[in-house]
């Protein structure tokens, strides 16, 4: 039987097997966008975004059944907060509650860690928040985050647009999220209403998931639905990727003390097991 530490590493690896999910935050809104996969032509598309309460929801990458367990747990927590205090569950309380559950699995024998990563998005008393949850039990807040296959490409895009997010409108934010998501596509794929799912929550809007026909208007915001990471951007991207790796080591060396959301620190979760994601994003280049 492999050691628990190894299992946790495998679990984080499982996230990368899952299709990509990205999240972005402005001062007023949080947007989630995810790529749905269907295992075979005849099958249905996998559910990528789960509503937890009127003010929060999650996007997942990895084992969907594990995500169901975690999101149902979050729903219960949110509901009991409503029941006992008539208070919407705060995002930080929510993510820490699943972090504690996940952490126990990394320490106790006989079980296995959750094989899923979550982007937890929500709007509470202290504003809009986006958290990344990993099977290790680590949770970090971000202004932009991406998990799943080829997510590095989305991160690279978001790092470039970082300054625009805080003051972006809801529509702009969705456009950014979809552009980031588009960057994770393989060459022969494109976003469409069947494989794209978008969710928004914010100051004036309850957590709403857009699927199928409902996602069409958002897709129309993009000029092209195919991956446009063409040769013009190639060299610049490669450079940035390299820079990130250096940044990662620095960030993880600091012991992830940063409380302020920073997209740059976001990569720390990938450090150590970088190669597969890297090679995937390399594949994209012709």
């Amino acid at each position: 039987m492999p050691s628990i530490a190894l299992l946790t590493a495998y679990a984080i690896e499982a996230i990368k097997q899952g299709s990509a999910a990205v999240g972005l935050v402005s001062k007023t809104h949080v947007v989630l966008a995810a790529l749905k996969r269907n295992a075979e032509e005849l099958g249905s598309y996998q559910k990528k975004i789960i509503k937890v309460d009127d003010h929060m929801g999650v996007a997942l990458a990895g084992l969907a059944p594990d995500a169901r367990i975690l999101s149902n747990y979050l729903r219960q927590q949110a509901m009991s907060s409503k029941m006992v205090f008539n208070r919407p569950l705060s995002l930080s309380k929510a993510v820490h509650s699943i972090a504690d559950k996940a952490q126990e699995n990394t320490q106790s024998a006989g079980g296995r860690p959750y094989g899923v990563g979550l982007l937890v998005a929500g709007y509470d008393d202290s504003g809009a928040h986006l958290y990344e949850f990993l099977p290790s039990g680590s949770v970090l807040e971000y202004v932009g985050a991406a998990i799943g296959a080829r997510s590095q490409a989305a991160k690279t895009f978001m790092e470039r647009k970082l300054e625009d997010f805080p003051d972006a409108s809801k529509e702009q934010l969705i456009e950014y999220a979809l552009t980031a998501l588009r960057d994770t596509l393989a060459q022969d794929k494109e976003l469409n209403s069947a494989n794209t799912t978008v969710a928004v929550v914010g100051v004036d809007q309850d957590f709403t998931v857009y699927d199928d026909d409902d996602v069409e208007p958002w897709l129309n915001l993009l000029d092209s639905l195919a991956n446009t990471r063409n040769t013009a951007l190639k060299e610049e991207d490669d450079d940035e990727d390299d820079d990130d790796n250096d940044g990662d080591k620095a960030a993880s060396a600091e012991g992830q003390t940063a409380t302020a959301p920073a997209a740059g620190a976001g990569d720390s979760s990938d450090s150590g097991t970088q190669p597969s994601a890297e090679s995937e994003s390399m594949d994209v280049d012709p």
Binding site: D53, R75, M79, K82
Partner: peptide, 13 residues
């Protein structure tokens, strides 16, 4: 009323 609202939410989920 509170319990009903909760049950309604789960029905939607």
């Amino acid at each position: 009323v509170k319990v009903f609202e909760n049950r309604l939410k789960w029905y939607h989920f």
